[in-house]
Structure formats: C-alpha cells, structure tokens
Design a binder for these strands. Structure first.
Lengths: 123, 123
DNA sequence: AATATTATTCTACATTTGTAGAGCAATTAA
DNA sequence: TTAATTGCTCTACAAATGTAGAATAATATT
C-alpha cells in the first residue's frame, strides 16, 4: 500500500515535526489551507494504511509517523529504478550523475562517499 | 499532467518498441493480458494527455511516444528530490549512494563519471 | 448552566483510474 | 457476398482520491 499525493504531502509535514496534533499540521500547510476535516480524513486514511499512529493526549491525539522517511523514500527510488532502469541501480546512478547538474562541491562530496564505500567493500 | 501507473506500464512497452500497433502492444503484455479494449482506452487517454501520437497505416494506427523516456524520468526524479530532499540533488545523491548497494564495479564506474564531470566543470 | 470551540467520525460527491462490454466501420476469409 | 475479424470509440462501473459539510462528543468560555 502506498500514499496518495495528498497523503504524502501531509506525511512530509509529519516527518518534519516528528509528532504533531491535527491543529499543528493544519497550521503548517501553506495557504490556501485545506479544511480541517480534509486533514482529518487524510489522517484517518493514513492510519488505515498504517502509515501513522497516535497517542491520546487529553481529548486530542498526537500523531506520529509509523514509517521512516528514508524507508519510504527508498521504496520509491527502488520502484523508479525497477521501472526505468531494468532494476540496475548502477545504471540509474550513472544516468543521474550525468543528467543532474551537480556543483563541483557536490561532486567532490560524492566522490568521498564513493571512496568510503569502496573502502568498506574491500575491507 | 502525468501518467497513471497503468498508463505508465503501457508507456514502457511503447518506449521499448519505439513504435507499435495496438496488437503488438497487447502481445507484449505478460499474462494475464488485459482486454484489447483496455489497452485501447489507455492509449486514448494517453493521446489526450499528449504522451503518444500515431500515424495512420491502412485501417490501423501505429503509435509512438511523444515524450522521451529520459525526460519523463528526469521529471520523476526531480519531483522526488524536491519532495524528499529539499530540492538538493547533491543531498539526494549522497543518500542514494549510501543506501543503495552498488557493486564495486558500479562504484568504480560512478567514480569515472564523476571525474569526467569534474573535468568538464573545471575546463 | 448555557454557549462556543475543538477533535474526530460519518457521509457525500466529483474526479481519476482500472477494466472491459457493446457497437460500428473497415477488412479479410469462406 | 455473407460472415468473421480487427481496431477503435462510447459507455459503464467499481475503486481510489481530493475535498469538505453535518453530526457528535468533549472541553473551555462567559
């Protein structure tokens, strides 16, 4: 099961705040803010999909993510790679590096990471 | 406008064949194949969205993509990056390199590409 | 105590998506 | 030339999604 775009947007807010009351999430929306019931509906659906949980605090609930952003994200990227690159992460990486306009600094940084990875592999 | 998952799957087939008649696309589907009308409907919607065009050949149409796979893909990735990495491709690249399990060969290849990029930047 | 506010659930409805039958026109086969 | 096949459009319908009002219950305010 995965999140719909609207749900995903809300999830982003929740990931950012770590935990939040409905009101707080609503406040975080850029104008034009949706109706509070809209947010409530989305939260409900996200609970059903087991993407968020909550703890009861007084009469309200404090919501929190049940999936880590990085995990969710990894799935996304993996899906993309499977779809577009024949399941080859390497092929994807090459493409990505060539298509994206990374700055010199970013490229250097990437190199460092890759070297680190290579060191790990070889050790 | 973007493609729905089912449309995207069909698009993949079309990208692979470059151009194809409805029948050919249908044949490319793995079992269980959808009804031909299903494919027809999808093709129609994709025409409306201006993702495919066709040339009339006798009584049939030969369909072809109107958007390049790499362009479509770039948009996807850019969307992801915007969503998840604060619009920083560099941040994404780092994450990706660390999370994905690239082989030694792939890492080496990546390094080559990066060096190439750096050379371009500096020249 | 009476009223307003709030968080949540229920219900609703338009739009998009997945899937495909019915109908039609052109083409091929019997 | 009548019948079967093919490619396409129209129509249909269930499920998912985006959006939000109505109802309810609990709490806070006057």
């Amino acid at each position: 099961m995965s999140l719909s775009p609207a749900e995903e947007q809300l999830m982003q807010l929740l990931w950012k705040k770590k935990k939040a009351f409905m009101k707080e999430l609503l406040d975080m929306f850029p104008a034009p803010k949706p109706a509070s019931t809209t947010v409530a509906t989305l939260l409900k659906r996200m609970q059903d999909k087991e993407f968020v949980g909550y703890t009861q605090v007084g009469r309200a609930r404090q919501y929190f993510p049940l999936v880590k952003k990085t995990d969710y994200f990894s799935n996304h990227v993996n899906g993309l790679i499977k779809h577009f690159f024949n399941d080859s992460a390497g092929q994807f990486a090459s493409f990505f590096t060539q298509e994206t306009n990374l700055s010199e600094k970013e490229l250097e940084h990437l190199k460092t990471i890759i070297d680190q990875q290579l060191k790990n592999k070889r050790s």
